[in-house]
Design a protein around this nucleic acid. Sequence first.
DNA 1: CGAAGACTTGAAATAGATCAAGCGTTGTGG
DNA 2: CCACAACGCTTGATCTATTTCAAGTCTTCG
Lengths: 216, 216
Amino acid sequence: MIEVLKKVQLLSGLSEKQLRKLEEISILKQYTKGKIIFNPSQKAEGFYILLKGKIKIYKTKKGKEQILRIFSSPVFFGEAASFTGENFPVWAETLEDSKILFISRKQFLELMREDPEIAIKLLTIMSKRLIYLTNLIESLSLKDALSKVSFYILKKVEETNNNEIEFRTNIVAMQLGLTKETVSRVLSKLKLMEVIKKDGNKVKILNKKALSELSE
Amino acid sequence: MIEVLKKVQLLSGLSEKQLRKLEEISILKQYTKGKIIFNPSQKAEGFYILLKGKIKIYKTKKGKEQILRIFSSPVFFGEAASFTGENFPVWAETLEDSKILFISRKQFLELMREDPEIAIKLLTIMSKRLIYLTNLIESLSLKDALSKVSFYILKKVEETNNNEIEFRTNIVAMQLGLTKETVSRVLSKLKLMEVIKKDGNKVKILNKKALSELSE
DNA sequence: CGAAGACTTGAAATAGATCAAGCGTTGTGG
DNA sequence: CCACAACGCTTGATCTATTTCAAGTCTTCG
């Protein structure tokens, strides 16, 4: 397991000894697809490391669901609530069978006091998450459906360095704060404009320039 | 000035000596109302402490403006971009005449290595900001106009511990991702329902229970 | 006092949601 | 290996909340 822990950005600078200590103080849980890891009625006593699998972090209101992030292993999550010690502000749910490590706040604080560089590394990661949310707010509140979808595809292409990306209408809709119907219609438009091509659950970019103009 | 620095939550645990050091390495700037402190074309070399005054943090897209936060002194801001060293993701602008301190990232990192408790304190504050943005996303994407405005008023009342709050249609609209007309109409409805009373730029809560039901 | 700015109100326009029906793909059990 | 149920996707028609445009009123402050 130590090999997996090393791959988590936050923990990459830790010594073998520290990692072994971390392994000791952590609790391993297995989840099948579609299971809730935590929800807003729970108090956060620590945070989680996703060793294997995929999860979604989301908010709900009157049955409506807004996905904030989708994380693939290895990555950690639940840290914000962990530090304030309040309830989780969001839901976390597995999208695939997953292996997840739980680490208590108290123990992790100790680790940070021993090695302040971890705290500084964590600050950098949380800064990135703040900026991510800032950009999410921009695209949720200032863009129209066509821009949102175009921007989404473009960002995915850049992230994965591949101009063919996975695209599930339903999931994308929830990330963009739209309905599946709207996303489907926008996608048809983009196909008609010959900006993209769709093949099963894959989307291929045909005209990147046009796409980036649409996403402004 | 040291007295003011002590009032900043982040710095409240620092010794006199550390504060004096901080004062040495910082640069004081004065801004009149309506001035831009930074914008997304600037690279972040450090962060800011608002000693006196009021600022807004916002995003823009095609002339539309989405306010993310309004800060009153004393408080620090710009820290997320500062840690990643990238461009600021947002605009910062004074809403009143303000006194602002600039502190370079490098110097502050030194301070944190000397005293890891500062890093931990900063983590807590950034956690709160993450949660704040998470909740902002909820109210921007999952609520309708009536809920948004009700929720806004309710939160303001709780924050200020006063059941009469300042309310400027235009500013509130931009914080809620609505137009001033929509906010004005919602407010009229709330007045008609005898949930609130408006008097100049003050809103007084008449029926808190009804308001909290509307804000769900 | 008058002008500029902030707020209100109405009518029309519109983007996206919702409702409904049909289509295609996939995977499971007989 | 086929059949068919289940699920995701598409497309059309309608509905609705909010925006936009426009005009008028109120406020305040030099």
